[in-house]
Amino acid sequence: MDEKPAQAILTMPSSADREAIFSRVRGALAPLHERAPMPDYTTELAVLRQMMGNRDAFTIFSERLVRVNGIALTEIAALVARLREGKWLQGYCDPVLWPMLAPHFGADFTVETTYDRKRVDDYAFGITRAAGAIAETGTIILSDATTSRRLGALTPWVHVAVVERAKIYSDLPQAVAALGSDSNVIWVTGPSKTADVEGILIEGVHGPGVQIALVV
């Protein structure tokens, strides 16, 4: 609803700059006798074929996820045990997933299927659906269409992404090809981290400190 006034005010002054930039670009390139051609190449060159070998996507995914300090689980019971073990008893869950998960969660858990941004610190875990995963890098893929809340997957200390085994792409180029038409896709590779302070790795900076993939 704010879009119209913003556009009305702002596209006007920048049109002179647009022309100035375009004309300078043309002027800068005019003296070139020839332009560098686009190389013909295949991104296959960038795929870690040797590492993956003939192994199945799930095996590779789990191995690579561990490499980035993520956790791959296949049993809901194991997930519940992990959460209990970490004393992460309150959380958010995508309403679509909850009916499948609820029978496994005990009465010691408080799970909400709505996310209230005012209570950001109350959610110790967030369970959302992934759009897929990438084996090569141990990455989970979230998209606006499949992930119920961007915040729900980001603000809790523990993020659990529910990944369908059939949607594990082999490598980066494959996952790029599958980006689709969603206006927002995010690849998440392990827990949020930084090494800004003296190069020391610290996990859980702004996003989750624990990243779990529940492969179903």
Partner: peptide, 18 residues
Amino acid sequence: DLTVYTEFISGPKSPAQP
């Protein structure tokens, strides 16, 4: 191998996304 968050944005959020 890859940064933790790699985000692909092609516009404002999808209408279904809160």
